[in-house]
Amino acid sequence: MISPTIRHLAAGRSIRRRQRQVILALLAGVICLAFALSLMLGKSFVPSGAVLGVLRGENVPGMSFIVGQLRLPRALLAMLAGLCFGMGGAAFQILLRNPLASPDIIGINMGTSAAAVFAIVVPGLEGAMVSVCAVAAGMAIAMAIYALSFRQGVTGSRLSLIGIGVSAMLQSVIAWILSRAPAWDLQEAMRWLTGSVNGAGIDQIWPLLAALALFGTVLLAQARNLETLRMGDDLAVALGIRSNRTRFMVFGGAVGLMAIATSMTGPIAAVAFLSGSIAARITGNNGSLLLPAGLIGAGLVLVGDYAGQNLMPGRYPVGVETGALGAPYLIYLILRVNRGGDSL
């Protein structure tokens, strides 16, 4: 005999699961559309047939270079970096139970940027070496923030505050380095402060794919534990979660995604911070936020870069567009959190 309550629960769950699938499919659809449009539209129009031809590896005169060498790597880089920023950012916000505690606010990205600026200006490194330094230093600084906030485990508020402090310190380091930098380094260094997908090359795609395969998998595998951790440490432990281990895995996974994405595009402003919040509004807390936040991040960077290239007078790096979107939202969120004290 099956009680009406059981039937009701089963029905409710299958509705929610379908809702989630529909939302994920819609988000993926929007990204595919934005991706296709950013391959076709631009200063010159490339018809869909020609785009498909180029993607199949055919040589389409006049189009192969524009699509294959310029637009495709750019769109891929934007999409993958957006995925990393969105997932990593949401992971931080959920972990620290605070929508303001995204990695671009609490100093995780700043570590990567500061290291890159230092590497360009002081020893005068170039290209891939800068990225390697940036990733290594970004992770090291993130781990330092984690270690500094460790006292019988890490709590969200301690980690956020120490992160903000470290972030302020790094900012002054960047300002100091830039003030002494020769003019020819400034252009390259600035790229690491705003975030852009200019000059994307297909070789930048592989590190991002690897980061998603490794760190993205770690995060998604921890998604359920992370959701349980949201109910407070005590209850999570009572439900069999090893809270410090989960926190460390999520922290490590998110830092890995953020550091590698930042080393490819610079810290694209506010994407990490916006994606989780938007995902929470759209999905209404139906299941883990990580995947929807990743998709929204990908969409934001794709559309933001397209807008910065084609819809504005002059060309702007994508970080300018997303930053302009993020600032008012940050103010709105601060007001809201102060009033209601709620999380994502």
Binding site: R97, G232, D234, L235, A280
Partner: peptide
Amino acid sequence: LLPQAPIAPEG
């Protein structure tokens, strides 16, 4: 174990 102050995720 039911602790003293568990948190209900919003929504």
